[in-house]
C-alpha cells in the first residue's frame, strides 16, 4: 500500500500553502519566530518520515537529528532567494553529511525551491531528489555529497572565493560527528584556521552515533570541542534541538573575525520519533508502512 493511499499526502500539501506561498520569491532573512520555526521543524520531520517511508530506503536518523539546525538556518539566518537558487550574493549552505539529503530536500521544498509534492519522488528513477545530494539536478543543492569528509574543504573554497571577490556572503557547512572520523575533515579544519576563513561556520550534528553504534565505541572523538579549539576554531556548544540557542549561536558567530567558527550542536539521532531516538538501526533504514503511521501520529 502506498503512503498516498493511506491519506498522508494532504498534510504535505497543506504545508505548501502555509509556508512556501507566503514567502515565495522573497529573500529570506531572519523572518520566522521561534514558534513559527517549531511548527516548520515538525513539518520537516513529517516530510522525512513520509519521504523515506515512500522510498523504502534512506537515512531518517541523521536527518531527524539536524531538523532544528536547518530550520534555524533556512528560516532565521540564511540570506537566500528560493526563486533564484544561483543568486550570486546568497549565503551558502553546504550539506557535507550528504545522507541527510531527505532533510535538506524537505527544507528546500518548504522554502519554495521546488514543489513539496516532489518530495515523494525521493530515490526514484529520474527524480531530482537523489539518494545523496547531487548539485547538478536539485535546485538549492550546493554540493554533490555522500562521500563523507569533503564538505568542509569544499566550503573553504566557497568561502575563499567570497573573500577574493569581496562578496559578503557567509558559508555554512553541516558535518556529522561520525563524519569527523575522516582525516580530510581535520585537513580542512587546519586549513580553515590557517587561511582565516571567518566567513565560514561549520555545524556538527553531534548525535553521538554512527552506523556501527555509539561513536565512543566505534571511534572515540573525545575531547571533541577541544580538538576544534586546538585546530584554531572559535567553538560554540548548543542544544541542537533548541531553536533559540541555535539562532543565538549563529548570531554570535557573525562578529568573530580572523578565525572560523564551529557550532557543536548536541542532538539526538532520530529525534522526535520515539522508536528511532538513539537507535542506530534507523541510521540507514527507512520506516515501514506501520512505523510511518506510528511516527506520523507522534509528530501530529
Amino acid at each position: 500500500m502506498s503512503l498516498s493511499e493511506e491519506g498522508n499526502l494532504p498534510s504535505i500539501s497543506d504545508s505548501v500553502t502555509t509556508s512556501a506561498n507566503s514567502m515565495k520569491a522573497e529573500v529570506f532573512s531572519s523572518s520566522a519566530s521561534v514558534a513559527e520555526m517549531e511548527a516548520i521543524a515538525k513539518r520537516l520531520r513529517r516530510h522525512i518520515i513520509t519521504m523515506t517511508g515512500k522510498a523504502g530506503s534512506g537515512h531518517p536518523g541523521g536527518s531527524l537529528s539536524a531538523v532544528e539546525i536547518l530550520t534555524a538556518l533556512y528560516f532565521g539566518v540564511l540570506r537566500h532567494k528560493p526563486s533564484d537558487p544561483q543568486w550570486a550574493d546568497r549565503d551558502r549552505f553546504i550539506l557535507s553529511k550528504g545522507h541527510a539529503a531527505p532533510l535538506l530536500y524537505a527544507t528546500l521544498a518548504e522554502c519554495g525551491y521546488f514543489p513539496v509534492d516532489e518530495l515523494l519522488t525521493l530515490r526514484q528513477m529520474d527524480s531530482r531528489l537523489q539518494g545523496h545530494t547531487d548539485r547538478t539536478v536539485t535546485p538549492g543543492v550546493e554540493m554533490s555529497a555522500g562521500a563523507l569528509g569533503q564538505g568542509l574543504s569544499f566550503a573553504i573554497g566557497v568561502a575563499l572565493a567570497g573573500q577574493l571577490n569581496s562578496q559578503d556572503y557567509r558559508v555554512y557547512v553541516l558535518l556529522g560527528d561520525g563524519e569527523c572520523d575522516e582525516g580530510q575533515v581535520w585537513e580542512g579544519a587546519m586549513a580553515a584556521a590557517h587561511f582565516k576563513v571567518d566567513n565560514l561556520v561549520a555545524i556538527v550534528d553531534n548525535n553521538g552515533q554512527q552506523i556501527d553504534g555509539w561513536n565512543r565505541d566505534v571511534m572515540n572523538l573525545d575531547p571533541f570541542p577541544g580538538k576544534w579549539q586546538a585546530f584554531g576554531w572559535h567553538v560554540i556548544e548548543v542544544d541542537g534541538h533548541n531553536l533559540a540557542q541555535l539562532t543565538e549561536a549563529f548570531d554570535q558567530a557573525k562578529p568573530v573575525k580572523g578565525q572560523p567558527t564551529v557550532i557543536i550542536a548536541h542532538t539526538i539521532k532520530g529525534k522526535g520519533v520515539s522508536f528511532m531516538e538513539n537507535n542506530p538501526d534507523f541510521h540507514g533504514k527507512a520506516p515501514n508502512a506501520e512505523e510511518v503511521k506510528i511516527a506520523l501520529k507522534e509528530l501530529e
Binding site: E142, F154, G157
Partner: peptide
C-alpha cells in the same frame, strides 16, 4: 593534504573561480 586541496579547488570553481 591533497584531499583537502582538491575539494577546496572544487569549492572555488563552484563559486566562479
Amino acid at each position: 593534504a591533497e584531499q583537502n586541496m582538491v575539494s577546496i579547488a572544487a569549492g572555488l570553481a563552484a563559486s566562479g573561480k
